[in-house]
């Protein structure tokens, strides 16, 4: 039996909205540690790793490890039927072929349940090596989203270059070119607005903007985003989910022909 109750049910809707553009079908892995998902997009260029710890839920029970295969799009459609302030409870039997989502309004006056059929999905688990990254940038997630969106009006790829002074996002395209530089700065009163650059050595890598714009769908989950890069390695774009876990996206760099 799997049962998980989340007072802030809207969190799961935001998570689904941040994954469904990249991956169609995926397995949610439920265990005593929590609720997790690892999935690659169909072209094997990007990977999502999402983890919600069991202690972040108001109630969490998972008697045995369970893999729930779902269409992320259909699950997102169901979660759209949940009120913004609703409490969410997920339930699934160990050998069952469905998962139930129960939505309770804050005043308990409306209770609804939606059942989603599960699917058998062959998933490939990838081993992600622990890496000491050359550079890690923490910045406001909305700023990162804006930069990716703005640069997409000019080009398809972005060169992200980190130096100790700042991080520069550059693109070129048929109509011209664009650069945005974000400098490190601290803000004691508003930590969510600060930009922190932790750099061992300068690093510059090129990525497809299309994927970064998909990752930015996670912006409502966190005020800050952490971008970790090393030479010739996939970038990690991580959004921490307060008191619960994270959603991390890995994206393979582009290389010069």
């Amino acid at each position: 039996m799997f049962e998980a109750r989340l007072t802030q049910g809207v969190l799961l809707r935001k998570l689904l909205d941040s994954m469904k553009d990249l991956v169609q079908d995926a397995n949610f892995d439920c265990s005593s540690t929590g609720f997790a998902l690892q999935a690659m997009d169909s072209s094997h260029v990007s990977l999502i790793h999402m983890q919600l710890r069991s202690d972040g839920f108001d109630h969490f029970r998972c008697d045995r490890n369970l893999s729930m295969g779902v269409s992320l799009n259909n699950m997102a459609k169901i979660l759209k039927c949940m009120g913004n302030d609703d409490v969410l409870t997920m339930k699934a039997e160990d050998q069952g072929d469905s998962v139930t989502f129960m939505f309770e309004s804050a005043n308990q006056e409306r209770i609804s349940d939606f059942e989603l059929k599960l699917m058998d999905i062959d998933s490939e688990q990838l081993g992600i090596p622990d890496t000491d990254y050359s550079a890690t940038v923490k910045m406001p997630s909305a700023e990162f989203a804006r930069i990716c969106k703005d640069l997409s009006t000019i080009g398809d790829t972005v060169l992200i270059a980190v130096t100790k002074d700042g991080v520069r996002f550059s693109t070129t395209g048929d109509i011209g070119s664009a650069n945005v530089t974000v400098r490190s700065h601290s803000n004691v009163d508003k930590p969510e607005e600060q930009v922190v650059i932790d750099m061992q050595e300068p690093v510059a890598l090129t990525f497809a903007l299309r994927y970064l714009n998909s990752f930015a769908k996670a912006t409502p989950l966190s005020n800050q985003v952490m971008i970790s890069m090393s030479k010739e390695l996939p970038v990690v774009v991580q959004y921490r989910i307060e008191d619960m876990g994270h959603i991390s996206y890995y994206l393979a760099p582009k290389i010069e022909d």
Binding site: V45, L47, E124, L126, T157, P234, Y250
Partner: peptide, 14 residues
């Protein structure tokens, strides 16, 4: 145009 790397080149299948 730069070539797109693939994640399989970096992460091993478990």
């Amino acid at each position: 145009t730069p070539l797109q790397n693939n994640l399989d080149e970096f992460f091993a299948l478990i």
